[in-house]
């Protein structure tokens, strides 16, 4: 059970702020005292070896997997906690859901609903969670699909789309909830190389529209071009962060250096 921290975030301008996050799975420390603050409109690339805690951080931020200890503030609201007249209490599942809906998430394997058309994938949550009328949800969905270049795929089923198209639908589905923050968990890792760019293009466009984004990625080109900051994870800790170009070219930590060299050797 998460302990409730009564402190307030240090910066009111932070869109996402996490303080003292701990998360263990059995003996494995996935997050070991992680602090991170992401300003509104900032794009943060999260890099590190697999199992270093990057994806766990994302899942802790939207409380898909609540942290064991520590607090997460999303646009000033402490996740998992509700303020009442006489202090604070643990949020109910319903209250957590409402806050989670403000945080969009995109998964490595897209996780589209295969029995729904593209349009149904986009309107289901806005109608069920936001209580938006169908006509309005459909209109918004069509506009979003046009913005990710898939206006002609409204009635297609996910199985009829390429991986890159599916991931663009998944991004549109998350955006349909009008999130304040977007979390991307290795959004291009499951894609054939020739399909990576179409997804990155949509993400660049989103970044240029000042969406706050946390992106777990192995795409160093994208990290360098688009991210404002690169954060390097190792064994559940952030061991290095800074301007992407600096961290990529001049890593201070030996572990970061070793990781970057491995990536380079792989031909990135």
């Amino acid at each position: 059970m998460a302990s409730v921290e009564q402190e307030y975030p240090s910066s009111n301008r932070a869109m996402v702020e996490a303080k003292g996050l701990f998360k263990s799975y059995g003996q494995v420390k996935a997050l070991d005292d992680v602090d991170i603050a992401v300003a509104s409109g900032e794009v943060v690339a999260i890099v590190g070896a697999s199992g270093s805690g990057k994806s766990t951080l994302l899942r802790c931020i939207n409380y898909l997997d609540p942290p064991d200890k520590g607090g997460v503030w999303v646009s000033g609201h402490l996740m998992g906690v509700v303020e009442t007249v006489n202090g604070t209490r643990k949020a109910t599942e319903r209250e957590i859901r409402r806050h989670r809906a403000d945080i969009g998430m995109v998964f490595q394997h897209f996780n589209l609903f295969p029995h729904f058309t593209v349009l149904q994938n986009l309107i289901e949550a806005p109608m069920a969670v936001r209580k938006i009328a169908r006509a309005e949800a459909v209109e918004m969905a069509k506009a979003l699909l046009a913005s990710v270049g898939l206006a002609d795929k409204v009635d297609a089923f996910p199985s009829e789309l390429s991986g890159g198209q599916q991931q663009r639908v998944a991004i549109a589905r998350a955006l349909a909830m009008k999130p304040r923050v977007m979390l991307f968990d290795e959004p291009t890792s499951a894609l054939d190389p020739e399909l990576v760019d179409e997804v990155l293009r949509v993400m660049r466009q989103l970044a240029s529209e000042s969406m706050t984004m946390l992106v777990v990625t192995h795409e160093m080109g994208f990290a360098e071009d688009v991210a404002d900051r690169l954060v390097f994870f190792d064994k559940g800790k952030i061991i290095e962060e800074g301007k992407p170009a600096d961290v990529l070219r001049n890593p201070a930590q030996p572990r970061t250096k070793a990781f970057m060299q491995r990536l380079l050797r792989r031909g990135q």
Partner: peptide, 27 residues
């Protein structure tokens, strides 16, 4: 049914019952 379906539904803010009724059972 792939566990990713539950994660996606949860991330969108859908309730457990809604997820079972609309996402999991139809599959």
């Amino acid at each position: 049914i792939d566990s990713g379906q539950y994660k996606a539904a949860k991330a969108l803010g859908l309730s457990h019952l809604h997820t079972l009724r609309r996402i999991i059972l139809p599959q």
